[in-house]
Amino acid sequence: MNKGQKRDWVKIILDNFIWLILTVLFTYFAVNVPNFTSKTNLLNILLHASVLGVLTIGQAIVLMTGNFDLSAEGMVSLSTILAMWLMIEPGSVVGTAQGSGLMLNPYLVIFIILILGTLSGYIIGVLITRLNMNGFIVTLAAQLVLRGVAMIVSNGQIMTGSPKAFNWLGGAKIYGIPVSVIVTLLLFVGVNYMLNQSKFGRELRAVGANPDAAQASGFNPKRTITLAYTIGGFLAAFAGWMLLGRLETAVSSLGSGMTLETVAASVIGGVSLKGGIGSVGGAFAGVLLLSLIDNALNLMSVDSFWVESVRGFIILLALLIEAQKFRYKPKVVHEKEPAVASDCK
């Protein structure tokens, strides 16, 4: 086997390493954990993966442009709280949720929160591209503001009792399979196809790899990045809709910690933090991996304290592999301005 062939072979394995890990873990759990492969449990795994999955699609898209989105979890919190607030009555018992009493039509409310998410993503995108503000900090600040507003609106209360029409996405089933699972799978397939086949997908990757070269080629990096954040905002609100439907409960702490998970899932799935590389399909594998582990740990009698460490180790492992990948591929050319860097990478 000459060097070229060996490289190809290794490359294929590394590219799809995540699926390999997934298969190995799945088999291990199937053998050692009782009831792991029952239909209900497999559906549970996919159910866990659905909300995280939707958020990860958004994060992956933003990552591919070479930026970060820390604000998505804030939008999950705000969209769920706002939706509840618009739909339920003020509670009569002190210390329970005070809805607005507006009792808006659930469909209208869905529309409202999706618009809210889109708008928020758009504003963030504009702040980052037009005003040249650092993406990391802008989305961090946005998260504080979004969650803060959620806390104000809910006054720290737990709000329960969302109407059935609203819960459909998160709670209903078609032929025994949860709607959220179907929708998430469709989204992944659809977005993956779009990114691989469409001009937008090429634009996304080009901008992530080298914004100036992309500009020279006729793309508009500012518009692309703004669009990426807008999509991210929309998906975050969508995920909120899904989550609320499943829990039928909203509290401002919903979504905490999901940012880390979405970034981790994307990275495990091969999305590069430098931008320009990766696919949504890989991110999906990352999401499945994290959900698999969570589910297995719930079924085994393991201290939930170990989950954190296990997750951390897996991420490090995935990163190591990502770093190794670059030895076998030509490096993507990244530009950095000499005197000043306006983005953190």
């Binding site: 970060f68 880390l260 970034v263 981790a264 990275v267 933090l273 304290f305 170990w306 989950v307 954190e308 460490s309 296990v310 997750r311 951390g312 180790f313 991420i315 490090l316 990163l319």
Partner: peptide
Amino acid sequence: LIVTIAMQMILRGL
């Protein structure tokens, strides 16, 4: 970014 996030999780787990 990712290394220190991973470390954050590992250390907290510890």
